[in-house]
Amino acid sequence: MNVELDALNEALKAVSSLRSCVGNFFLSLSQGVRSEHGEDHRETKYILELQDLVAEISSNMRKVEQTCSSIPLPPDGQINLGNTAHLAHETTQDRQALYSELVGSYKWTDKLHEISNITFGFLAQNVMKRSYNSYLNSSGMNAKRRRLTPSCHNVPISSVETVITAIDRQYQDMNMNVYRPHPSNCHNLQIQVSLGRILRAVISFRGMMIEWVKVKAYNEEFQTDNGQLGQLDLWTNSRHHVFRKITENANAAMLHFYSPTLPDLAVRSFMTWLHSFRSLFTDTCRRCGNHLLCAMPPTWRDFRTLEAFHEDCKP
């Protein structure tokens, strides 16, 4: 069956290259003598070009014939298309297009199936769950008895503010402003971080847990236009590729550092990581030693060593 398919694929490829070189021939024919042919002997050069194209067509034609003859014919003399073969017998005009659409959707579901399999395997290896329970369950302990309720989202706002003030004092070039978007909600807090003259970030907390991070350029605003005091814009993306990439990485870092048992350490580690972007535009990549790769600076920072890497160079 596989040999059959390979031969069929070969033949189809040969047909398409034949079609493309016939296309080239007619293109050249329709354009006539062009400026590339220069001044002297332009007609002769043009005719030579056409002859080359014709020679190419005949060699491709030979290839098509060869590959066609190598396709083994199915025993009953027909290629079995299953039920879809009946579609070709459809007489109504507007249903005749159904076959190609059917093939398209078949390919699409096939691809979807493949991708979801890969995703499943990938997610199974990387535990991103924010609840402590799953670890306990998987280690075989009695879930009911040993269940600890994660409480870091329940920490009173004042102690979160204390931690943030301490971090703010620790870094001279990183300033933090605290906002309370919903004064009645005692667990929600947003902070706006300015890192040197490099970037700004908004970080949304639920208790001591970081919920959401958005990074933008130094001159991009987080204040919303409707003038509501204390409301920061958490949703609009940065205009710049580099900060959209850092936002993505910051969200990965936020999940990486998350710790249900030591919530304030998680926040500290995240802030240290974010602070390493103060040299975003001056760092060279640890691996390739350049500033730029695909016109982008190193946007990845190692979680442990804080070394800078390009997106495609990261370990």
Binding site: A217, Y218, F281, T282, P297
Partner: peptide, 11 residues
């Protein structure tokens, strides 16, 4: 994305 010439000249 950068507003300080000294920061991004090398890049």
């Amino acid at each position: 994305p950068c507003f300080i010439a000294g920061n991004c000249w090398e890049l």
